[in-house]
Write a protein that binds this DNA or RNA. Structure first.
Length: 473
DNA sequence: AGGCGCATTAAATGT
DNA sequence: ACATTTCCATGCGCCT
């Protein structure tokens, strides 16, 4: 019993420290941890529960007032007094407002190399025909949002040089730059870090990895506009949506809320809006031009884990939720401040993703009830459930099955350090092969297929690694 | 109905 | 090699 007590205490203490640290960060105070350790001590007297809801705890136990007053007193950061064990090295002060890339930078690499690289691709004359968008000159016209094509599974491989640890800790979101002229991936982790990896920089200087800390909480979404790659949107559990302007080198603050933001998406034909899942089932639309929420619906009874649009009809949207359902909505059928679902796919547990196939005719869901659903038919009336182990546990991000470059294959993580490939043809509908490699030393959980390079698939792990599988065909 | 304790899980880090 | 640490997941069962 005694040792259990100790670990219990220890756990609470760490939890408290972390919470306090995040609070400190959110208040932009980078200092004075004397009272922090005091609060940790105080925690000992509060021998109560192990899991207290964050809000409650914030209100009841965290000495907010003291911290505020510290800042209002204008006390300077005094790192010398910070106990070594409490220093979290990768946490520069967090601001609730715009933050420059320089301030958010947590690596030794220079911003300029990254900025110039991205701008050079944006400004590629090849891609810059016409250019009347007045949008920073980052036109990418003539290239589709996403190419379609079949690939040869047998030819997919993982080269050792296509592996990197891009951020520390667990990755929640990953996105390729939608450019055919460079291979760059962006990954967001549990700590709120965002890492950029220029995969082809081996021949250039540095390791091609640039890390920033623009968020105080897990990065739930990354969006890169295909026609304006110099603008990168990130969201986090802390309720922030940031819009990184590469030209200005600023992580701007687009929107902030007390609710957690669990998912973000953009409607392909309306890049001025951001659709995001907020709190316990609310879907909101933020309009870039007005800088405000233009619409908001209460669609689910629990968090919305994913949002996706049908490529063939951008009015058709799908959401997946921890309430155990994935739904299909028609945005034209807006009732009185309500949306009616065209279809509800019911799972027995939380649904962590729902994505339309490239053609739009199949919806694939991934659920903690250990199934992957394939929903098809003219009105999505055919449901087929494929059994698949999706119990990732506490230390890994949940699995989300993603589509490849046509309707024939899906990719999903496998607890045995592989990537399961599901053939979706009506007569198959099962795992037909598993991508495995001795170089894949951890379980890939979240994926992003390169939108312009069929066969190029990024997979990310609970340890911050990114694997880029490629196909020679 | 809802809050709380607990088991579960993988991989980095420490010895 | 093995042991320790990680500690904003989630479901379940037990308790109010």
């Amino acid at each position: 019993m005694a040792p259990e007590r100790v670990t219990e205490y220890e756990r609470k203490r760490l939890e408290n420290i972390k919470r306090n640290d995040e609070l400190l960060a959110s208040l932009n105070i980078h200092s004075k941890l004397a009272d922090l350790s005091a609060s940790a001590k105080r925690q000992r007297e509060h021998t109560k529960s192990y899991k207290v809801s964050p809000e409650k705890k914030l209100k009841s136990e965290t000495p907010i007032v003291i911290r505020r007053s510290l800042r209002t007193q204008g006390k300077q950061p005094d790192s010398t007094t910070i106990p070594k064990s409490l220093v979290i090295p990768k946490n520069p002060p967090h601001q609730l407002g715009p933050i420059t890339m320089a301030d958010a930078n947590t690596c030794s690499e220079s911003n300029q190399v990254l900025v110039q690289k991205i701008l050079s691709v944006c400004k590629d004359p090849q891609l810059k025909d016409g250019d009347g968008d007045g949008d920073g000159g980052c036109a990418n016209k003539g290239i589709g949002l996403r190419v379609k094509g079949s690939i040869d599974l047998e030819s997919m491989e993982l080269a050792p040089e296509n592996i990197a640890r891009v951020v520390p800790g667990r990755i929640l979101s990953v996105k390729f730059f939608p450019s055919a002229d460079m291979r760059m991936v962006v990954a967001g982790n549990k700590f709120g870090d965002v890492g950029f990896w220029n995969v082809d920089s081996q021949n250039e200087d540095g390791d091609g990895i640039y890390t920033y800390h623009p968020h105080p909480a897990p990065v739930s979404g990354i969006l890169i506009h295909p026609f304006s790659m110099n603008k990168i949107i990130t969201s986090c559990y802390g309720g922030l949506i940031r819009l990184l302007d590469i030209e200005k080198e600023i992580f701007g603050l687009a929107y902030s809320t007390d609710d957690a933001i669990f998912s973000t998406s953009q409607r392909p034909d309306d890049m001025n809006s951001i659709y995001f899942g907020e709190g316990n089932g609310v879907l909101s639309i933020w309009d870039e031009r007005s800088g405000k929420i233009s619409l908001s619906w209460d669609l689910h009874e629990s968090r919305i884990n994913s949002i996706d649009f049908n490529s063939e009809n951008n009015n058709i949207m799908t959401t997946s939720s921890s309430d155990g359902t994935a739904c299909i909505w028609d945005l034209r059928k807006v009732g009185k401040s309500k949306l009616e679902s065209l279809k509800v796919v019911a799972h027995k547990r939380a649904v962590h993703s729902a994505f339309f196939s490239p053609s739009g005719s199949i919806l694939a869901t991934t659920s903690l009830d250990d199934t992957i659903g394939l929903v098809s038919g003219a009105n999505y009336e055919d449901e087929f459930m494929i059994s698949h182990n999706n119990r990732t546990g506490r230390w890994l991000s949940t699995f989300r099955g993603v589509w490849g470059w046509d309707d024939s294959y899906m990719f999903v993580g496998n607890m045995k350090r592989g990537i399961d490939v599901i053939s979706t043809a009506a007569e198959e509908r099962r795992v037909v092969s598993t991508l495995e490699s001795p170089h894949m030393s951890a379980i890939p959980c979240r994926f992003d297929p390169h939108p312009l390079k069929p066969g190029m698939l990024a997979g990310t792990t609970g340890g911050g690694q990114v694997y880029i599988w490629t196909s020679s065909s």
